[in-house]
């Protein structure tokens, strides 16, 4: 297995230990192998685009990393050391933050309560410091989405894009080292999407590793250093974005055909 990891990285990064390495991860729900012996890694300051058709297993794979699901088999390494991740709390302790495809917001409470859910700011008497949380939230949201003003309303009453902004704010606010973004811009307008693009560049510069799941292949080519393509739960292959064309990646997604510029995975079509 170690050979496979090394061969994946023929560039300058090969010297560094990956921030995260997932090896032979499998999980099934009932009879469905949602993820089947999938492996991939993420280096500091790197954006990895995770691609695949609907139901390919992308969300499931990253939910294993974020502790939402417990894998059936396989292992996860953080900074080269085997990590125990069986619930979201443990993942957060490793600095793994996630923007879920479903956003995972508590609809009935306001933006600040969602942003700080599970990590509330307390007063010195141990009570909730709502004013401090609201003040911080105003700051973060201002950076992300300057038009956002509805700080007092339950997030249920916000638009899809505004909700997405809250979910993004929550993931980036707590000094994540590893950021997982499951279709973070699906509901955003062009200006806000641009904002998230800039944010990704900035986070990358800070040395944060990012898994970016998106169906927009142009976005992925703009933002990602590498792509990992999944099909039917298995990894078709991975490639640096400069080594493959968009058409080749589409071929990987749709047909599972691994182009010459990519490293074959167990899910690739036999040649």
């Amino acid at each position: 297995m170690d050979n496979a990891v090394a061969s994946n990285n023929t560039n300058a990064e090969s010297a560094a230990t990956p921030l995260v390495a997932m090896k032979d991860i499998s999980i099934s729900f009932g009879g469905i192998h949602a993820v089947d012996k999938a492996s991939c890694e993420l280096y500091p300051g790197e954006v990895v685009g995770l691609l695949g058709h609907n139901g390919a297993g992308k969300s499931t794979l990253i939910k294993i990393l974020s502790g939402a699901y417990t894998r059936d088999s396989g292992s996860i390494y953080v900074d080269g050391e085997e990590a125990t991740i069986t619930n979201p709390r443990q993942a957060k302790e490793y600095g793994i933050e996630t923007i879920y495809q479903t956003l995972a917001l508590a609809d009935n409470v306001d933006a600040a309560a969602n942003l700080y859910l599970g990590r509330e700011i307390l007063t010195r008497w141990g009570t909730l410091d709502d004013a401090a949380m609201e003040a911080e939230t105003r700051k973060v949201m201002n950076r992300l989405n300057p038009n956002f003003t509805r700080f007092k309303d339950p997030v249920k009453q916000l638009s899809g894009g505004q909700r997405q902004s809250v979910a993004i704010a929550r993931a980036i606010h707590f000094n994540a080292r590893i950021l997982i973004m499951d279709e973070p811009t699906a509901a955003l307008g062009p200006a806000e999407t641009e904002q998230v693009g800039q944010l990704i560049h900035q986070l990358k510069g800070d040395g944060i590793g990012i898994f970016l799941i998106s169906h927009d292949i142009h976005d992925v080519f703009d933002l990602a250093d590498r792509v990992v393509v999944m099909k039917n739960g298995a990894v078709v292959g991975s490639a640096k974005t400069q080594d493959v064309t968009k058409d080749e990646v589409l071929g990987m997604i749709i047909l599972g055909k691994c182009p010459p510029g990519a490293i074959r995975g167990p899910g690739a079509l036999a040649e």
């Binding site: 939402a68 956003l103 995972a104 508590a106 009935n108 859910l117």
Partner: peptide, 13 residues
């Protein structure tokens, strides 16, 4: 939070 979205509460740790 649990009442509003049990799954989200769990994911928030």
């Amino acid at each position: 939070a649990i009442g509003g979205n049990p799954e989200a509460a769990e994911l928030a740790g």
